[in-house]
């Protein structure tokens, strides 16, 4: 299971990102992306995504959800998890294109049996990966919500989710 995440992340293109993959015996490695350099336009779209979608929480990596999820999210920003996250039309379409370009293409990790996941934390694969994480670890004030990836994954904002980088507040390292 672990491997599926890692492969989908390794395929991802993210500016300056470092992604994780595990080999057969589950040892983890990080390797810099072998990505082609981004065009000027892509760079500015990435910067806009980062700025706009990190105003209220960290900017989640687009690779965690499929196109249909991002499409639905971007069409519903006026009621985004109970808040208004609208921006002007030009910025909305730049961010939408960016998300669509880097969305997950791996059906196995994002399949919702016909339903469209708006939350990464709803996808069955995510739920499985986090089954040992207790409710208490999540609801404590220092974490507050499972959506606060960076409260536990110390390098989440850089796109790295290795086990040894996990540090759960008031609980400690995971290994």
């Amino acid at each position: 299971m672990k491997k599926i995440w890692n492969i989908s992340l390794a395929v991802a293109l993210f500016v300056g990102g470092v992604y994780v993959y595990a080999d057969e015996d589950e040892r983890e490695h990080a390797r810099p992306m072998q990505s082609k350099p981004l065009s000027k336009q892509d760079q500015s779209a990435a910067a806009l995504y980062k700025k706009e979608c990190s105003a209220c929480h960290m900017a989640y990596q687009p690779e965690f959800l499929p196109k249909r999820s991002w499409d639905k999210t971007m069409k519903g920003l006026d009621n985004h998890f109970g808040t208004d996250a609208t921006m002007d039309l030009a910025d909305t379409s730049t961010v939408q294109n960016y998300l669509m370009t880097y969305a997950s293409k791996n059906e196995r990790i994002t399949d919702m049996k016909g339903a469209v996941a708006l939350r990464i934390s709803q996808t069955p694969h995510f739920v499985r990966e986090h089954r040992e994480v207790t409710k208490k670890m999540i609801t404590q004030p220092a974490v507050k919500s499972i959506a606060n990836c960076n409260a536990c994954h110390t390098k989440a904002e850089a796109g790295s989710y290795r086990e040894r980088e996990i540090n759960i507040p008031n609980h400690g390292r995971w290994e």
Binding site: C56, H57, F81, G82, T83, P141, K144, S145, A147, N148
Partner: peptide
Amino acid sequence: GKNSLTGK
């Protein structure tokens, strides 16, 4: 301040 919805 602190975003009451997300904690950020």
